[in-house]
C-alpha cells in the first residue's frame, strides 16, 4: 500500500505514472521515426546493394561520389533550389497579397478564400493528375485554349523543351502552395495588435501607408517563418514529381527526394540513396538556419 502510494502518487519523487503514460507513444515514435533516421545515417556510410546482408564500410565515399561524380545529384539539387526560388517569388508573394486583401471582409471574400485554399488539402496525386491534364498537348486546357484563341496557329507542349518541364511542375505546385502561404500570412496579420493600426488611423495614415509602414514591418517574424517553411517544403518535394513525370524526360525533373528514392528502390544502392537523403536533410537545415541568422542580424 505504501509502495503503491509512492509509485502512483503525483507528489512522490518516485512516481512512475507519467512514464507509464509516455511508454506507448515514446516506444512507437522511437522505433518507427527516430531509430530509422539514425539508422539511415549509419547506412549512408556503407556500400550496400540491398541484395545481400553484406555491407562494406566506405566512410564518406557515398557522399563524395554524389557530390563529384553523379550529375543527376546536381540536377536534383538545382531543381530543389529552383523550386525554392520560384516558390518565394510566385505563391509566397501572391499569398501575401491575398492575405492582405482578404483581411477585410467584402462580398465574396469567403468564397475567394475557400477557393484559394481548397487545392492545399487535395492529394498531390489528384493535383498532379489534374495538371497533367491541364498541360497535355492533346486534351489539355492550355493547348486547346491557345488553339481556340488563335484559330489553331498557336500550340503548347510542356514536354517540347525538357529543360523547362521542371518549371511546369513548380507552377502546378504553386497552385496548391499559394493557399498555404496565404493562411500563414493571415495568421501573422491577425497577430498584429489592432491598437497599433487604430493609432495609425487616428494619425491620418492612408491605407497604403498603414500597409507599408505599419503592417509589413510587423510581419517580419511571419516572413521569416514563411521563408523557412517554403524552403523546407521545396526540399521535401517528392509526390508531384512521382505523379507527373517520374523524374523524366531523361532525368531532368529529378529532385533530391526522387533521386534518393530511385537510388534505393530501383537501383538498390542503399548506401548512396541514404547519403542523398541525408544531404537533402543537411541542406534543408543549413538553409533554414542561414535564413534565421540573416533575419536576426537585420534586426540588430
Amino acid at each position: 500500500m505504501i509502495l503503491k502510494g509512492n509509485l502512483f502518487n503525483p507528489k512522490s519523487r518516485f512516481c512512475i505514472t507519467p512514464y507509464l503514460f509516455l511508454l506507448l507513444p515514446f516506444a512507437a515514435y522511437t522505433v518507427f521515426l527516430v531509430y530509422p533516421m539514425v539508422y539511415s545515417l549509419f547506412i549512408s556510410l556503407f556500400e550496400w546493394n540491398g541484395m545481400s546482408d553484406r555491407k562494406t564500410f566506405v566512410g564518406l565515399a557515398n557522399y563524395a561520389y554524389e557530390l563529384m561524380d553523379d550529375s543527376v545529384f546536381w540536377i536534383g539539387l538545382k531543381n530543389n533550389l529552383k523550386w525554392s526560388i520560384l516558390f518565394l517569388i510566385l505563391p509566397v508573394v501572391l499569398g501575401l497579397l491575398l492575405a492582405i486583401l482578404l483581411n477585410s471582409r467584402f462580398p465574396g471574400s469567403g468564397v475567394l478564400r475557400t477557393s484559394i485554399f481548397l487545392p492545399v488539402v487535395l492529394s498531390v496525386t489528384a493535383v498532379g493528375l489534374m495538371w497533367r491534364w491541364v498541360y497535355d498537348p492533346n486534351v489539355g486546357l492550355i493547348n486547346n485554349a491557345l488553339k481556340w484563341i488563335s484559330n489553331g496557329r498557336l500550340s503548347f507542349n510542356w514536354y517540347s523543351d525538357p529543360g523547362n518541364v521542371i518549371i511546369y511542375l513548380i507552377l502546378a505546385s504553386s497552385w496548391s502552395y499559394t493557399g498555404m502561404a496565404m493562411i500563414l500570412f493571415a495568421a501573422g496579420i491577425k497577430s498584429v495588435p489592432s491598437s497599433v493600426l487604430e493609432a495609425a488611423i487616428l494619425d491620418g495614415a492612408s491605407p497604403r501607408q498603414r500597409l507599408i509602414y505599419i503592417l509589413l514591418p510587423q510581419l517580419r517574424n511571419t516572413l521569416n517563418v514563411v521563408i523557412v517553411y517554403t524552403m523546407t517544403t521545396s526540399f521535401k518535394v517528392f509526390d508531384l514529381v512521382y505523379v507527373m513525370t517520374g523524374g523524366g524526360p531523361g532525368r531532368m525533373t529529378n529532385v533530391l527526394a526522387s533521386l534518393s528514392y530511385d537510388t534505393v528502390f530501383s537501383y538498390f544502392e542503399y548506401g548512396r540513396g541514404s547519403a542523398i537523403a541525408w544531404m537533402m536533410t543537411l541542406i534543408l537545415l543549413l538553409l533554414s538556419s542561414v535564413v534565421n541568422r540573416l533575419v536576426s542580424m537585420q534586426r540588430n
Binding site: 521515426l33 533516421m37 541525408w278
Partner: peptide, 21 residues
C-alpha cells in the same frame, strides 16, 4: 523537443530503414 523532431526532419530519410524493419 524530441517529439518535435519528427516535424522538422523529412520523413524521406526514414523510408529505407522502415522498409527493412
Amino acid at each position: 523537443a524530441y517529439f518535435l523532431l519528427g516535424m522538422l526532419l523529412p520523413a524521406h530519410v526514414t523510408l529505407l530503414p522502415n522498409y527493412l524493419t
